[in-house]
Design a protein around this nucleic acid. Structure first.
Lengths: 233, 233
DNA sequence: GTCGAAATGTACGGTACAGTACGTTTTGAT
DNA sequence: ATCAAAACGTACTGTACCGTACATTTCGAC
């Protein structure tokens, strides 16, 4: 056992901590594994995706995989965690132009929720809900919950300034999002649908905002009734 | 061999066909197996439920099971098929009292959709959507689709008689159901929630119908605005 | 180029499970 | 009581797969 100073220096510069990948090489390996696992898990689910398949796709070896992720479940957690965390955050520009703000929010939500990636993610999370309930909860809080809270906050602010006529901001937000998403959401869950086009999303966003304001905005009431009348199936 | 008349009569009444279970005994065995399989599949999912477990619970033997259901997948199909087919059908009493009709419809839908049985069924169907896409489609058509169509039909009728002011019955129905179900539906999917109580369901049904009529019923407009004002969180 | 750590490949242990084979027991009609 | 069909139970086959062991190769810093 010799203590050569070079090695000690090297070790010192790295600042490695037990868990985290030390070198660039390690990071790269780990990333490759995570990527392969993500693709396979999203496509095939947990039970149907074998470690061997992940190893083969990642190009690495089984032992390496297990040196980074102690178990299949841990790898799964890491995958879903990264996917959930790297998703587009819900945003709501708190403009005074209510129609514009709501429409933009609506379109953004639909773009995210009805994307291919999200569709795969949903199936995965629901399928493994019993095995990994904490993951399902994490998703719920970062996704639907967060989006809901954002909308509630905005509506409460508007309500206090009498720009909106709402008895319960909570319920109004639920209604708005329900109108917007529900129908396509279940189709997405049970059929294997194609995502709506940008046009369809815009169309729907506009209609939902119209109806919503019609029911909730006292000043705006009955204004655009004529315009809507013609151009719908 | 004596031919006593009683027995011949009995056999004649049976009318056995090749596939179908001949005797009472067979029917009973099959039913026991199906029941056990239903319970286990609904609770644990497809992959997690083993044939041996089903056999054990049904009290029968493996060979018997395989004599009725050629494969695990076939048994699963039979299970989901029976559960889906024996569900409560969506109903809509086409009364002229719009509020009453919609409210009753709404409460019925929620009672079904947020029942424990239905919650389990959803998870199962979504989880195995890739393995059994036809089953998912069957469920969708008999459940959400059917309920939607029913509502559309009703709304179109009302619209033609100018009792409702709707540009697209399709869209209106989507909005109504979305307002009604979406929020709790999602919670049910991602968390492991308790079903809403009868009171909560009534409360929500009333609110949804109110808001809906406010946005869509030209005659009813602005009538109950004051009443709603107080008693909401 | 040298050396140690990281990565690889392969093979294996252990286990869980779908489906089959077959000898034995139960059932229910005559 | 008798007899055939149905049900049973147990053991077995084959397979898929998680996780480990280990001997060998590659990499990257000096």
């Amino acid at each position: 056992m010799k203590k050569t100073s070079e090695k000690m220096r090297r070790k010192a510069t790295r600042g490695r901590t037990g868990a985290e990948p030390a070198s660039t090489r390690g990071q790269e390996r780990q990333a490759r594994i995570l990527k392969a696992a993500t693709e396979l898990f999203l496509k095939g689910g947990y039970g149907e995706t074998s470690i061997d398949a992940i190893v083969e796709r990642s190009g690495g070896s089984k032992a390496t995989l297990y040196s980074y992720f102690p178990t299949k479940g841990a790898l799964f957690r890491a995958v879903v965690d990264s996917v959930v965390s790297n998703r587009e955050e819900p945003e709501l520009e708190p403009s005074d132009d209510i129609r514009k703000a709501l429409t933009s929010f609506a379109e953004q939500r639909m773009r995210v929720v009805f994307s291919k990636r999200h569709r795969e993610l949903l199936g995965l999370i629901i399928s493994e809900r019993d095995r990994f309930p904490d993951i399902a909860r994490l998703y719920y809080e970062r996704g639907p919950q967060r989006s809901h809270d954002l909308l509630v906050e905005y509506m409460q602010a508007l309500n206090q300034r009498n720009l909106l006529d709402i008895s319960s901001a909570d319920e109004s937000a639920e209604f708005f999002i329900g109108m917007l998403l529900h129908h396509w959401y279940i189709a997405q869950l049970y059929l294997r649908p194609t995502s709506p086009t940008a046009e369809e999303r815009q169309h729907r966003a506009a209609h939902v905002v119209d109806r919503f304001l019609e029911a909730f905005d006292s000043s705006d009431r009955k204004s655009r009734r004529g315009r809507e009348r013609g151009a719908q199936k």
